Amino acid sequence: MLIIHEHGQHDRPTVWTPGMGRPKAPIWIDLLEPSEDERHCAAEITGLRVPERSDIVNLALSSRIRTDDDAMYLSIPYFADTNNGHAAQPVGIVVTNHVLMTLRFTESPAFDLANASCQHQHWESSADVLATLIEAIVNLGAQRMEDVSAELKKLSDRVFTPERLGTPVLRGCMLEVGRLEGMQARNRSSMLGVQRIVSFVRAKKPDWMGDAVEVRLRVVEHDLRTLDEFDDQLTNKLQFLLDATLGFISTDQNHVMKVLTVASVATIPPVILAGIWGMNFKDMPELNLPYAYPIALLIMLLSMALPVLFFKWRGWWSGD
């Protein structure tokens, strides 16, 4: 898909179709999983080279962020701005003094928000559009981090409860911690890519970038630093919940082992008594007693009850 925003156009953007005429004053060319025809059309409209996917995902920083004549080639190799668990996709950005071109390979709420903003914002330049797009990405990233924080609060209330939680419930809490950590890791990768782009653009600050846009980028850079600190807090909270869950599981297992130990100790006396009365000697006084067998059973039961009562009196049986 090829979405075209024109300078001064305040209604919905135009979706390119074969045979459509050349736009008069394009200010933002948005490529979404483009075909070869759409890539060729974007190159003709902008006069720029459309990056390949391999160029965007290149790990070398010089390949991801660079200048080429009057154009700045920027990219985010791992961009995920949704919490639906989809894999991160790369995003490429090319900006000049007259047009912004973006290349992406999946739907993006941030891009949709920036696309919709054309109805109530008057973009003066391509740098203005770039600032709008970056602000949308950062704002939605902050919203996702707040969503993770809210879910962490609910999970913390589930873990730290006076009621004893069984191992299956605690295992479910561990899986929830892993899910939230995955969401935060995807969000962290996106914010890191945006932070590098903002730092690079502010450091280069081409002549065609106005002071108003530079101020907006400065505010975004401050927001990114704040979100980075918030990310550290969330990461520490996730690690704390994981350690607490593992501690509760360990405590639960120790309680089970303690119960089994107490039960095994309680059965030692009757085993000893049964072993004594089961010895085959010629003269055993108990053999002549009329009620020797029920008396032996009663003594065995009593020998089990006494250790159990003693353990309960000492508080070793309850485990609390």
Score class of each variant (00 low, 15 high):
A87E: 15
A116P: 01
P162W: 08
V213I: 08
S126R: 02
S199I: 07
M145F: 09
G172S: 09
R179L: 13
E124M: 10
L180K: 05
A142D: 11
R164E: 14
D157I: 07
G166S: 15
R104S: 11
G172W: 00
I134W: 13
S75N: 01
C118S: 12
L175M: 05
E176S: 14
R196G: 08
N115T: 14
Q195K: 14
N83P: 10
G210Y: 02
R186F: 08
K205G: 02
V129K: 11
L192Y: 12
G193A: 08
P162I: 05
V99W: 08
F79P: 00
K204S: 04
V95Y: 06
R171W: 05
N139A: 15
V169F: 07
R196N: 09
A185D: 10
L180C: 05
G210Q: 03
D70E: 11
V91Q: 06
L175K: 09
A114D: 11
M209V: 07
T106L: 10
T161K: 12
H122F: 12
W208R: 04
A185P: 00
Y73F: 10
G92M: 03
E124A: 14
N187F: 00
H122Q: 13
A71Q: 04
L100Q: 14
D147S: 15
S199P: 01
T82C: 11
R104P: 09
I76Q: 01
M145E: 13
T132G: 12
V99E: 09
R164W: 04
A150W: 02
P90W: 06
P206H: 09
L100R: 14
L130I: 05
P77D: 02
I76H: 02
L165Q: 15
G178P: 01
R202C: 04
F200W: 07
M209P: 01
L74M: 06
K153Q: 10
A136N: 05
T161P: 02
M145D: 04
A203L: 07
V129N: 12
E214L: 03
R202P: 03
V177Y: 02
V159W: 01
N84D: 15
P90V: 05
M174C: 00
L175F: 10
D207S: 09
R104F: 06
V201P: 03
D157S: 14
F200E: 10
P162V: 07
D81Q: 03
A110S: 15
D70R: 07
L152M: 14
T132D: 15
G210W: 00
K153Y: 11
G210L: 01
S156H: 07
T167Q: 08
L180D: 06
I76G: 00
T106D: 15
H98L: 04
P168C: 06
L192K: 12
A110C: 12
G193N: 06
A80W: 00
K205I: 01
V177I: 15
